[in-house]
Amino acid sequence: MSSMLKLHFRKTGLKTTIQDFGRNGHQHIGIPVGGALDKLSMSAANRILDNEVNTPVLECTLIGPEIEFEGEGMICLTGAEMNGSIEDEPIERYKAVRVKSGDILKFKGAQEGCRTYIGIKGQWKVKSWLGSYSSLSSYLSEKGFMGPVQVNDKLEIEDLSSNENLPEIKIKKPYYASCYIVRVVTGPEFSQFSIEQIESFFHQIFTISQDANRMGYRLNERITGYDSSAEEISSGIIPGTVQITNSGQPIVLLADAQTTGGYPRMVNVISEDLNLFGQMKPGDEVKFMLATL
């Protein structure tokens, strides 16, 4: 028997967007890949709910939204711990939870990690664009596509499955520290940097600045002895590319980054470790470690 679940957004949270694995293959016309920053947590929510792994989820940042449900359905929270609760009943992360009409889902601020994913069982009744539901910036919402969640937005999810029982899936709850070691490989302009600059990049502990969003994370510290005003000829950039700005501050580019850029690309975070950036928040510490392919 199919059931319909409607979500009414009473509060948006700091930044709540619809995300999936993103849209690949349109970078040549300047369209970023988008998609969940922490794809491990995003796909875990779907696996627990017996959804296709690429089913959209809600990505909540630091402060979660407040959602009133209408109808019946199943949800699952993964990723950051934001102390989600329904009617003051705490929700255990990485577990499917049944919701019904009138239930209100609330969060406190992220206590550990940065992004919580809300998976919902069933099919999302939202418009996709170029094969993805990932909300880009506001220019799409002007054209009737779903942008970042706004107050009073409504979402509908229809569950067509007849199976009431979800498979038993054991997923280990991740633990997010506030310091990370991230593996990188050398980037296209690595050899332009001096030994001193390279040493300072790998020896120091960087902290995530306030200038951290889905496009990229700027780090507070600088690499030593770097002062450049030389502009490279713009070239392709990909999520995980670490650019060094003229002041010597690194920027780690993420899913919504533009597709080309002119700063030297010193290193690239390996795909496996890129999910960690989705859980890093301003003030967290990060150290880079050189890996080989």
């Binding site: 690949n24 293959g25 349109h26 970078q27 040549h28 890949v33 000829i233 713009s234 070239s235 392709g236 950039i237 990909i238 597709t259 080309t260």
Partner: peptide
């Protein structure tokens, strides 16, 4: 080069720029 490999299986995306081509 972009046109020659645009539809090749195993290529996920391409970013042509002034003097470079990024190939996924």
């Amino acid at each position: 080069l972009f046109k020659a490999i645009e539809f090749k299986k195993g290529i996920e995306f391409l970013i042509p720029a002034y003097n470079s081509l990024t190939i996924g």
